[in-house]
Amino acid sequence: MLSDSDLQAIGLTVRLAGVVTGILLVLGTPIAWWLARTRSKWKGPVGAMVALPLVLPPSVLGFYLLLAMGPNGPIGHLTEALGIGLLPFTFWGLVVASVFYSLPFMVQPVQNAFEAIGERPLEVAATLRASPLDTFFFVALPLALPGFLTAGILTFAHTVGEFGVVLMIGGNLPGITRVASVQIYDHVEALEYTEAHKLAAVMLIFSFLVLLGLYTRRPGSRRA
């Protein structure tokens, strides 16, 4: 039913969302832990920075990233010095952009979950002579697991739904940066409405199922 290029776009989208979710699990968890535990005056500013992509138009992020990752930008200088080359028009460029873009969707639910644990279990663990690292891995992480599940699903789904940033730094390369949302846009512009309908329906059903899973996972409970 779907054409090869549509399937390729879906495969690429899933791969991008998967990689980004994996990276953000590793990057986002310490940030969330720090935000949940700290009394530092930097908590406010860091929390605001993390939340920025929630309110910034994707065009702002795409514009900054295009300049920053280009040959005259700081990220571009860095990646060229490291011998990676330039990031725009590459899969890893999209990954970097999406990590910024989806950061709050990982950090915020995990931070909430850490905060919900409270002091008590951590203090009990400490009196039982658990090291801070042990406490984190064997007490905090298991207790925050529902929060991680929510964060993972939201991050994955949000990356799948990304469009504006990809359009600005992607260059529409089949199999590399032409994700499903861009493919649908292309179909619409080329007046291929049948193809656009098919792919759009796939996206709609996927998004609904993801959210259905999220909201019915623990009936009656608030989001972690």
Binding site: L66, G70, L86, F89, L167, G171, N172, L173, Y185
Partner: peptide, 20 residues
């Protein structure tokens, strides 16, 4: 080596920023 702009203005932007 192609990179595609959504329209001709975006294509120019890719070149103007030095990314292409």
């Amino acid at each position: 080596k192609f990179v595609q702009g959504e329209n001709i203005a975006q294509t120019q932007q890719f070149v103007a920023t030095g990314n292409a």
